[in-house]
């Protein structure tokens, strides 16, 4: 599970470099998200544009990543590919997360 990290407009952007977050990688994803968000950044944006497949374990790991950040800190999502967007829609997690079309839209909204 490879994640890369950058900061734009005071937003910590974490990009998932693997093309799937599934049962085989969910625990590592959650652990690496904990490490990367431990610095207390208030606003974290998870770029999923390179991820083609998320199963329920991957979904659970993304939810856990938000929960472990604690209240008052944001984890937004961006760049959901069609099959990933479907998992969020079917489970109604699209009403829990702020989901941006892509990174440009997410950063523009934050700057505006």
């Amino acid at each position: 599970m490879q994640l890369t990290c950058a900061t734009h407009n005071n937003i910590k952007v974490i990009t998932v470099e693997d093309n799937r977050i599934d049962a085989a990688s969910a625990i590592r994803f959650k652990d690496e998200m904990r490490t990367l968000t431990d610095d207390g950044a208030d606003h974290v944006l998870l770029d999923l544009s390179g991820v083609a497949f998320v199963d329920s374990s991957g979904l659970g790991a993304i939810i856990a990543s938000m929960k472990q950040m604690g209240d008052g800190r944001r984890l937004d999502l961006a760049g959901l590919t069609p099959d990933v967007a479907k998992v969020f829609r079917l489970t109604r997690m699209d009403s829990i997360f702020v989901i941006h079309k892509d990174m440009a839209a997410a950063l523009q909204r934050a700057a505006g």
């Binding site: 856990a64 938000m66 079917l90």
Partner: peptide, 23 residues
């Protein structure tokens, strides 16, 4: 479908698998 109407700390992290299969 697991209940996700509560506080953030209470959000479900699992239990979606059979829901998705049936759906």
């Amino acid at each position: 479908l697991p209940d996700s109407s509560g506080a953030r700390a209470d959000l479900p992290e699992g239990g979606f698998g059979w829901f998705l299969i049936h759906k």
